[in-house]
Design a binder for these strands. Structure first.
Lengths: 125, 125
DNA sequence: CCGAATCCAATCTGATACTG
DNA sequence: CAGTATCAGATTGGATTCGG
């Protein structure tokens, strides 16, 4: 039996469990972090540099949430100065292909969407 | 050449075109609307009833955005009283499989995520 | 029946400053 | 280096009201 995306018969509840999980990982910074870490683990400030535009707070909060959900791991390395390594977990790695499918769709259909926008805007001017 | 999710070499820009498009269609109500309409076109108030918890404003705004992006179509039927039919477009239909893949992931890995949360919370108590 | 427009409260987010 | 604390501005989203 396939997964029921409706969660409750013919109605769609806001607190559908799949949706709640989606909200934890589908936001702007989460996806960028996962894409960066997919290329290899790295540290806090390196992450911050590569995610142009992220604030310390947003990065910190997002990393913590991803870690709590088992998507990434956080390892303190006792060097001098101390370093903290962030990496994708095996579970997190399985989440990337579905997201990449959506990015591929966005990339492949950008022109069609843009054409639809132009048509819409000219009709509603 | 596969799609470059980075959009700009080793840095990740906030205004990456794919991301901007993603934001237009990946929000809470957009996904619920698309899932409902995948089962067949319907009208405004029927949509509102089936999307438990949506306000008129949010529904109206979201439908307009989806229409502008070519994901759904809006057809006025000149009956008495007038009716408005919302349907998925061919373009919109191609967006559903990628989203369903994410929902499948969420459904399949819910237990693993929950376990990770329990472990995290007990470590950070 | 199908919305648009307005108001307002809650939320989110980032800049800033400070700490181990 | 790797964060936490705080606060103000921006954004969101519902309730309400009104019009075609």
């Amino acid at each position: 039996m396939p997964h029921d995306t409706q969660c409750n018969g013919s109605r769609f509840l806001v607190d559908c469990p799949s949706r709640l999980l989606f909200d934890q990982v589908a936001d702007k910074w989460s996806m960028m972090i996962m894409t960066v870490l997919n290329g290899g683990g790295t540290r806090f400030n390196d992450l911050k540099r590569r995610l142009e535009g992220v604030s310390q707070k947003s990065l910190s909060v997002t990393l913590k949430r991803l870690e709590r959900n088992g998507i990434i791991s956080r390892t303190v390395v006792a060097t001098t100065p101390p370093a903290v390594l962030y990496e994708m977990t095996p579970l997190g790695l399985t989440l990337l292909p579905p997201f990449q499918a959506i990015y591929r769709w966005a990339h492949n259909n950008m022109d069609a969407v843009e054409a639809a926008r132009v048509a819409y805007d000219s009709d509603h001017s």
